[in-house]
Simulated assay, not measured.
Amino acid sequence: MSKAVYLDYNATAPIHQQVVEAMAAVMTAGGNPSSVHQSGRTARNRVEEARAALAGLINCKSPEIIFTSGGTEANNFALSTAGDRPLFISATEHDSVLAAAGEAAVRLPVDSHGILNLDVLRAALAAAETPAFVSVMLANNETGVIQPIRAIADIVHKQDGLLHCDAIQAVGKIPVDFNEFGVDMMSVSAHKFGGPQGIGALVLREGLAVPAFIRGGGQELGRRAGTENVAAIAGLGVAARTAEKIIAQGEAIAALRDEMEARIRDLSPASRIYGGTVPRLPNTSSIEMPGVPAELQVMSFDLDGFAVSAGSACSSGKVKASHVLKAMGASEEEAGTAIRISLGWRTTAADIDAFIDSWRKLYKRKSPKFAA
């Protein structure tokens, strides 16, 4: 390989150059957005311009947006508002939701395609003694599988429940409409769509009263205290304004992804593509290399110049099979041979050609099941 090929956009997307430039300008200018003098007012304007840009991208009202330190905090904030409500989450949620929900939460099953079982959800909510709090992600970070969020929201609200949606992997990849989805809360993270790491947001439906997550100041309408990270917020705003152009490339990215999967299946008909027959993010593929451990694949591809993942970037250092794939019916062995390949706006046909060549060489060298 003459250059490294980045195929791990779901872990973090490359930051846009205009984001870097905007953040540098803000850091140079300084100013506390809570100050009333000119530099403070300038900083405040930058925060509110970014808030408006994100609101425009996801179709919500600016005051509904609370800036956070990232997606994990947004998910923790959302789950902290459940109070005494019974808590229901899907079995394929991100670790930040699983951990925040705790052992008391009921994990709702998904089918073999990764789609939440709506009949089970409906029955569980009807049987609950009090209105519930439900958390279901829009698009899975490992498989890209997209949940029917509007239908889920209708079921939850029919039982007077609240619905949180982790939309972290979806925003900036597909159209996301907070109002149309009908959810009560939604999590966003900037670095998944070309913004900086360390900044995200929780969107709270207007009129929904929640306790403050961080106390000590009046920032974010008293819901999250602390001086705002103005540079990162400004970077998020620039990324939000750029996102529509990236979303428009979705069909082209999906075509590259589909070609890659077809060629891998030609090499290895036994390779399972998780969620491959249901709606997915256009850039995401979770696919097995039979007989070859995922950790070995990730290391081998890295040495060959390709960045891929064994699953969620938050847990890729752990030597264990994906809970997402196991919830979809994969055995421990099958889940342990699957990697996540996530494409993006810089991915080219030549990158896919080179990756397929590397995939074939590794499969031939390491798998006892290779027969091509």
Rank of each mutant, 00 (worst) to 15 (best):
S90C: 12
H94D: 11
D119R: 04
D111G: 02
T92G: 02
A50K: 11
A127Y: 05
L87V: 08
N76Y: 03
F77L: 00
A74V: 11
D111T: 01
E129L: 08
E93P: 11
I58Y: 03
G56S: 10
A124C: 07
S62I: 06
A99E: 14
N45L: 11
M137W: 02
T130G: 03
L79Y: 05
H113G: 01
A53F: 03
T72H: 01
F67G: 02
A139C: 10
L138T: 05
A101K: 10
N45D: 12
A55T: 15
E64C: 04
A132H: 04
R44N: 13
E73R: 03
L87H: 07
N76P: 05
K61W: 01
R85F: 00
N59G: 01
L138F: 06
C60L: 08
E64D: 08
P109C: 00
A126T: 15
D95E: 09
T42P: 06
A43Y: 09
I89L: 04
A82L: 08
F88H: 12
S135N: 14
E64K: 03
P63E: 02
G40C: 09
T81G: 07
E49F: 06
T72R: 06
L57P: 02
D95A: 02
M137S: 10
R51Q: 10
D119Q: 07
R107C: 06
A124P: 09
V97H: 00
G114Q: 11
A52H: 10
P86Q: 06
T81N: 09
T130S: 12
V136A: 06
E103F: 03
A101I: 11
P86K: 08
K61H: 07
C60I: 10
K61D: 08
P131R: 12
A132C: 09
D111R: 02
A82Q: 13
A52S: 09
S39N: 13
V47P: 13
A139T: 10
T72Y: 03
N45K: 15
A100W: 07
T92P: 03
A104D: 11
V110F: 02
H94G: 02
A128K: 12
H94V: 14
T68M: 03
A128T: 15
